[in-house]
Design a protein around this nucleic acid. Structure first.
Length: 472
RNA sequence: GGUCCCAUCGUCUAGCGGCCUAGGACGCUGGCCUCUCACGCCGGAAACACGGGUUCGAUCCCCGUUGGGACCA
């Protein structure tokens, strides 16, 4: 393969969307695999809908996912002269013409055509016009060919042909001087020397007109690869109404970027039976040949499973940082009141196995961080009973004397009580659990006690005993 | 409506004419482990949309039907 230059070209009209990320990822992987160049281009010609904020979100999302770009971000609004020059060239060569028709006129004629059973194609009313129409600013239309076919040679779909007579003379420059999407994209891709246009399936129908534009401009079209869409559970194009679709939402929900990358990579692409890919493996194995043709339904459960996997893989150090920043964000931990780092790592250590997201981990960490806990009513009623009180009392007494307050020693205490009293471990473990964390779900009780520490443990057992006393 | 695309378990997919009584993964589910919940381990149910061809032989090739999607308006 020659020099690979690919691009991701989002419109900054909102969040960075899952579908967009997948397109970006495939472009990025393709570039990295072929040691090519990955270019970021902001398609902001729609000034009314484009915002700076949105550009910022896109750039941050790309960084979060580790999709670094080699050139750009370019902006279409900085390139207006380039489009203008290309329009002028087509005009001069008779390959484009001014059109003075207003949107209202066009709409009316289209309806007429439809009513008369004719295809609603532009009727070329302005094609032969010699003199400008006074008082009207013209748009510029591309004079497309009526005959033959335009064949898109797509790397994923093979040859797809379109009858040229289906394509009408599309507007390339609006009357306000702004180029249309199909024109700007061609000029950009050509001037940026893009070798492979890898984009969503929804653009396949645009491709024949773009190919005609390349030719009219005297350029060789690039290679094309149209990626299958990502669908929601109802099998329509994934959109906001399907729930979380913005990258930032996944970040906020406690997903790791590598989980999202791995998940998205396998959506529409595969390498045999492999499910888990490191970033380097992805780069090494990615190819367009193994990209499928059928649209794929986005499956949050599988993403959750991958996230769990990557949380297990992640360095404790990193998870501790992430957890701490979550606590700072919601005010649980105030500046200056940070917990001891080694202790936090120990906490993460006992929590990570059962956490599918960072948010879940945060939730389980709460009883360890907070000074006060609230005891779940049902759990309290069930486990903090008069029977349990005696056991808790004894446990507290024995825990007090333990010197290295560690798992092994704590376990010994439990074993002693279990043996002497002849009760099942559960009879004592559950009440303690409820006393310490307020509910019935937690890591192993010995580790919980160790991480909780002697003071907190004894205090909470006492509080539980008072609660039992007050109740009876 | 016109044009184009697509079609293997609920979902993501492997399969590129015989290796398929169709493999893996998520999810679901039975069991084991167990101080709770998980994790983990072992097992299970679950698909080639339909109809024609081509071929000694079709999940795989061709045509049609059906279904879904996208784009244009």
């Amino acid at each position: 393969m020659g020099i690979v230059r690919v691009r991701f070209a989002p419109s900054p009209t909102g969040a960075l969307h899952i579908g967009g990320v997948r397109t970006a990822l495939f472009n990025w992987l393709f570039a990295r695999h072929h040691k090519g160049t990955f270019i970021l281009r902001i398609e902001d010609t729609d000034r009314s809908r484009s915002t700076e904020e949105s550009i910022r979100i896109i750039l941050e999302g790309m960084k979060w996912l580790g999709l670094d770009w080699d050139e750009g971000p370019y902006r279409q609004t900085d390139r207006m002269e380039i489009y203008r020059e290309h329009v002028d060239r087509l005009l001069k060569e008779g390959k484009a013409y001014y059109c003075y028709c207003t949107p209202e006129e066009l709409e009316a004629r289209r309806k007429q055509a439809l009513a008369a059973g004719r295809p609603p194609k532009y009727d070329r009313k302005c094609l032969g016009l010699k003199d400008p129409l006074a008082g009207r600013k013209p748009a510029v239309r591309f004079l497309s060919s009526d005959e033959g076919q335009t064949v898109v040679r797509d790397l994923i779909r093979g040859a797809v042909s379109f009858d040229n007579k289906q394509l009408d003379d599309l507007i390339i420059l609006r009357s306000d001087g702004v180029p249309t999407y199909n024109f700007a994209v061609v000029v950009d891709d050509v001037t940026m020397k893009i070798s492979h246009v890898i984009r969503g399936d929804d653009h396949l129908n645009n491709t024949p007109r773009q190919i005609q534009l390349y030719r009219a401009l005297g350029y060789e079209p690039p290679e094309f690869a149209h990626l299958p869409m990502i669908l929601g559970p109802d099998k329509t194009k994934l959109s906001k109404r399907h729930g979380a679709t913005a990258v930032t939402e996944y970040e906020d929900m406690g997903y790791l970027p590598e989980a999202l990358v791995n998940y998205l990579a396998r959506l529409g692409w595969s390498a045999g039976d492999q499910e888990i890919f490191s970033r380097d493996e992805l780069i090494e194995k990615f190819n367009l040949e193994n990209v499928g043709k059928a649209a794929a339904v986005f499956n949050p459960e599988k993403l959750l499973w991958l996230n769990h996997h990557y949380i297990q893989q992640a360095e404790t150090e990193r998870l501790a940082d992430l957890l701490l920043s979550l606590f700072k964000k919601d005010g649980t931990v105030r500046p200056g009141g940070e917990p001891d780092r080694e202790w936090l790592k120990k906490l993460v250590g006992i929590l990570k196995e059962r956490s599918h997201t960072l948010l879940e981990m945060k939730q389980s960490a709460l009883p360890f961080i907070l000074d006060e806990i609230k005891i779940d009513e049902k759990a309290g009623a069930k486990h903090l009973t008069l029977d349990a009180a005696g056991l808790l009392q004894e446990l507290a007494g024995r825990l007090k004397t333990i010197d290295p307050f560690v798992h092994a020693e704590i376990e010994k205490v439990f074993n002693t009580i279990v043996q002497e009293r002849g009760v099942k471990l559960g009879k004592i473990a559950q009440p303690v659990r409820v006393a310490l964390i307020g509910g019935t779900v937690s890591p192993g009780i010995y580790e919980v006690i160790e991480v909780m520490g002697k003071d907190k443990t004894l205090n909470r057992i006492e509080a539980a005993l008072r609660l039992i006393g007050a109740r009876s």
